[in-house]
């Protein structure tokens, strides 16, 4: 029955369909919250679904002079990376479907795949906005990846394991947001950077470079990138909640926690002005990385004393 279980886990729950729909639901909540913060009504509940179906059914224009195979495959890899990462995290507070020691590192790299693919996709098309967008996306990735890794390793160190399930089990009894507030902040902001949300949306800043790396994508490719992003939003929220906000719990409570986190994220998105790319990098390396490191030192010193 192992095979059947694997198929179900991959296609329906928690991978595959479930995570796609859940991701779209989170995306809707995000958009709706931003709209409410801006005193508007905002999109209807099925908006991300309609957007995705419409894009999938739309003509896909493949520009000439691009590597057509890369152009088609990159969005698939991006979505696959995001979907695969869902298998290792405690979606809606349930035990992860698969688990092995060191899966935290694998998950983080799977999550980076989306940005990498976006960057490659942008560099693949010859459009100038895409090129600038790709450069910015990769620059931003190099700036937030290290601090975020440090931030997520904080819980790993106190839990003395690299396994997501063990860390979230440990976090159940320790609200790490209290002991490691800086790590929490860096992780949340890092998640926003990963998803290129405002104020870290310089790689796809509409008023400067149209749609960044995805300017040339239409139809299916765009839909897959969008879906990948919404899946990553869900996975990222789950990860941060599991690590910092009291670990896995019953699904309802866990869901409520992720929603609370989403409110904070949406608030930050609507209240802050976009940073220039050099300001983003400066922010991460000057403050993010240093603060996370400082927290490490304090933690290690504390452990040494205790």
């Amino acid at each position: 029955m192992n095979t059947l279980r694997a198929v179900i886990a991959l296609l329906f729950f928690p991978g595959g369909l479930f995570i796609l729909f859940a991701g779209m639901a989170y995306e809707w909540v995000d958009r709706k919250l931003i709209a409410r913060f801006q005193n508007r009504i905002g999109p209807r509940w099925f908006q991300p679904l309609a957007d995705s179906i419409k894009l999938l059914a739309k003509e896909e224009v493949i520009p000439t002079d691009v590597n057509a195979i890369l152009f088609v495959v990159l969005p698939v890899i991006a979505l696959a990376g995001a979907l695969a990462s869902a298998l290792y995290v405690p979606i809606i507070g349930l035990e992860p479907s698969y688990s092995f020691s060191g899966d935290l590192i694998v998950t983080l790299y799977l999550l980076s795949l989306l940005t990498l693919c976006t960057g490659l996709a942008g560099a693949n098309t010859l459009d100038r906005f895409s090129l600038v967008g790709a450069t910015r996306a990769l620059t931003q990735m190099f700036s937030y990846e290290a601090p975020v890794l440090l931030a997520l390793l904080g819980p790993a160190i106190v839990a003395e394991s690299w396994k997501i399930s063990v860390i979230s089990e440990y976090a159940k009894s320790h609200w790490l947001i209290i002991t490691q507030p800086i790590g929490f902040l860096v992780a949340v902001i890092g998640l926003m950077g990963k998803l290129e949300m405002p104020p870290f949306d310089a790689p796809e800043a509409e008023t400067e470079i149209v749609a960044g790396a995805l300017t040339e994508y239409s139809g299916r490719g765009l839909a897959l990138f969008h879906l990948g992003k919404s899946v990553e939003l869900m996975v990222g929220l789950t990860l941060v909640t599991a690590f910092y906000l009291g670990g896995v719990a019953n699904p309802l409570l866990f869901f409520a926690k992720t929603l609370m986190l989403l409110v904070v994220v949406a608030g930050v998105q609507s209240l802050l002005t976009r940073l220039r790319i050099e300001q983003t990098v400066g922010l991460w390396w000057r403050y993010g990385a240093l603060l996370a490191l400082a927290q490490f030192l304090v933690m290690i010193a504390y452990e040494g004393v205790a």
């Binding site: 009504i41 905002g42 999109p43 209807r44 908006q47 749609a211």
Partner: peptide, 10 residues
């Protein structure tokens, strides 16, 4: 946005 309209740049 109530009707799903988004102004796109590209």
């Amino acid at each position: 946005e109530r009707f799903g309209v988004k102004l796109q740049g590209s």
